[in-house]
Amino acid sequence: MTLSTITIDINDQAYRAEVEPRRLLSDFIREDAGLTGTHVGCEHGVCGACTVQLDGAPVRSCLMLAIQAEGRSVRTVEGLSDSPEFHPLQKAFLDAHGLQCGYCTPGFLMSLEPYMRDADEISEQGIREAIAGNICRCTGYQSIVDAVQIAANEMRPQEDAER
């Protein structure tokens, strides 16, 4: 078994580390890059807490080796907003009580953001499908669905309203 030096772009910043091939992407993010916003729950692909984006698509970081992500672009919850302000989706989670303990929240956010970006129309059914792979034991999901709808309204282009 040999160590490999790999570089992964996380939130537009290159992180370089010497890792064993068995290093999971989730551990690379948390321990090598020090980005602890990504949470690890079940570590076998069931709970969705560790969801991050790989080249824009939601993926489970516990089901990917860091070395598989070598040279690719990862986005974590820390990269959701590039200013000190919350992303509208984060703000809506706060306003609609879309979280209690918050353990699952980063995974939900990283699953929902690409859904909101790619969906032709935001619907309750669509939201529920997008988060079907994320488990939350606090909210019962309804307040998360509400938060997405609030955020979708917030993020809708304002042209019509201003005219």
Binding site: G45, G48, A57, M64, S111, A130, G133
Partner: peptide, 9 residues
């Protein structure tokens, strides 16, 4: 088949 997070990979 599973979830979007699985199907993307």
């Amino acid at each position: 088949l599973a979830h979007p997070q699985i199907r993307s990979v």
